[in-house]
Design a protein around this nucleic acid. Structure first.
Lengths: 340, 340
DNA sequence: TTGTAAGCGTTATCAA
DNA sequence: TTGATAACGCTTACAA
């Protein structure tokens, strides 16, 4: 572990020049540059990121806030690992390291302190809840001018940097796919209405039905909590009305699969299943039996874009909220071929 | 953003005393402590983690190295998110932040530079491959005395800190479960033999069969790469010998489910399925149809223990390699009740 | 083009 | 029990 001083000595220059060469700043004679690089190479000198951060008052870290996932499994790990990978890939391109933090169940994360303590230069919030305290915490972040971006959650009336997918369109596509095939009694198993996400799905469902000349039957609207278990519970209700219900659209794959399981537990055979469309197109979708049609959400790209916004805030300000397109992936669960 | 200096002034003490109070070091008069805390509170003073790290030459970060997962899906996201959660939970208890890094496909990560640059104080390697370059990189880490821990991979002949699950026992349990139910022709779909993990499973299978008075039939030994696709491919072979093969033990759930899918694609009905046991007990296991029996691996706990070892190296040195117990979870795929 | 030196916000040592 | 002060290793004016 050679010091910068040694490098300077060996190269016969000042320490400042070593820094200049290594940072590629300022005008430097080619000969000097070569000598420094050589010396630094020979001594195996590696500058301390710590000292550099300190001197620049920039940590070089991008904070990523994850919700409290373990054990609960409410949300799919797929969802987060894709986004995290997208964020990681773009962060690396920008020379940023990822500092990941988990939310603690009861308490609200003190986002601003992370900045004040200078642990992070910017942050991406993945598991934002939509409640008073959380909003207040994020608003403070905004007020203090810290760069941040919220994923998968829209805060109405604010103009935070947000990256989300077009769930209105995704849901509309799902519904139209079903109505186009002649399904008329479509149950919609939504997630908690407190998520902007769920609200958008609701909107898309309404739109899709309307375009098909139909209306939402409130009795066909169910609410789960995005867990498989809640899908199983919904199956109890669906099973009872199976003579009329001919299709199920669930707000995520886990619930859709939960419903399938619930029906099966109640002795409903696959041949008698209603059509199914899920949401997220997680890897569980293709593992399901029958393979589950699902609305694909570009999680990886969403992660990349969030980082881009933070790196180019000027441009991002033009449209703080980015909505990525969703796409319907049709599989056996809703294809007429299978169902015929 | 008040400075320490202001706090010192307001409290009528020196800056050094402010630090002492906030760090809880040294003897301090209660009255002074109170005044400092009060002043610091009133001014909203938050010490800079950056400056602190710099002064202490400790980043306060625990590095976590993840393999390159996105898109590939070779490994289950479940696996990593559980471990990461375990690591995160224990890291938080120890006041450490998590710096996560992804491996890049082609290149070997330069672990030592992370330490030399002082980005991290210790590190946990999750996706260690077993090849020459990787081993060399890790050996260097060891040589330079940096604290690190390898998860889920054993390097024979080295005495690195390692945390793994007892895959010999897990596999033995799986096999005994099958033999106990009278299955005689058990196909074992293993992962690449280059992983220590796969080798241990092989050993467990051998042991289990031996205890049942049987021997491994080499023709019943298949090798996949832990992906669902490789399970589907294996199904081609299994389907052909379905008249003799009565059970399948796969080295992970994804492959087990892949085999199920492959068989189904080939028109094999669930009633005619062989018994199945998978491995990892990922959430996919209970979503499978039929629900997949699987060997549970305590990923979360493994993450916690890895951090503990790094925090208490003296004790960890007693037994650098920790093997956590595995457990068989029996579900419909292998239970005689279902199969009868 | 290069050197000198101030400064970054702590911690930690030494005196008092 | 507290204060003064020297590190810590880098960046970055400013001078030369």
């Amino acid at each position: 572990m050679a010091s910068r001083r040694e490098v300077a000595e060996l190269a016969g220059v000042s320490e400042a020049t070593v820094s200049r060469v290594l940072n590629g700043v300022g005008p430097i004679r080619e000969e000097t540059r070569r000598r420094v690089l050589e010396a630094s190479e020979r001594l195996g000198y590696v500058p301390s990121a710590l000292a550099r951060s300190f001197a620049r008052s920039k940590s070089g870290n991008l904070g990523v806030v994850l919700p409290y996932v373990p054990k609960a499994h409410l949300f799919s790990a797929y969802f987060f690992s894709e986004m995290l990978s997208g964020i990681g890939s773009k962060a690396r391109d920008n020379g940023l390291d990822l500092l990941v933090m988990f939310q603690t169940p009861g308490e609200v994360m003190n986002y601003t302190d992370l900045f004040r303590r200078q642990k992070i230069d910017a942050c991406i919030i993945l598991g934002a809840r939509y409640d008073h305290d959380e909003l207040a915490a994020i608003q403070q972040l905004d007020r203090e001018g810290h760069p941040f971006c919220v994923m998968n959650q829209h805060f109405t009336g604010e103009s935070f940097f947000e990256v989300d997918a077009d769930h209105v369109e995704g849901s509309r596509l799902a519904i139209r796919h079903l109505t186009d095939q002649g399904y008329r009694n479509i149950t919609f198993l939504n997630g908690p209405y407190s998520y902007s996400n769920s609200q958008e799905r609701m909107e898309g469902v309404r739109l899709g039905l309307q375009q098909a000349g139909m209306e939402l039957d409130p009795s066909l609207l169910l609410e789960g909590n995005y867990s498989r278990r809640s899908g199983i519970e919904a199956a109890a209700i669906i099973a009872e009305r199976l003579h009329e219900i001919d299709a199920v659209f669930a707000a995520n794959d886990r619930m859709a699969i939960g419903v399938m399981h619930g029906l099966r537990e109640r002795g409903v055979r696959i041949e008698d299943f209603p059509a199914f469309v899920g949401y997220d197109d997680s890897d569980a979708a293709e593992m399901a039996v029958p393979a589950l049609s699902s609305v694909r959400v570009p999680f990886f790209e969403m992660g990349e874009i969030a980082v881009s916004k933070l790196m180019h805030p000027a441009e991002a300000l033009q449209s703080p909220r980015t909505l990525l397109p969703t796409e319907l992936i049709v599989r056996a669960s809703s294809s007429s071929r299978f169902r015929a």
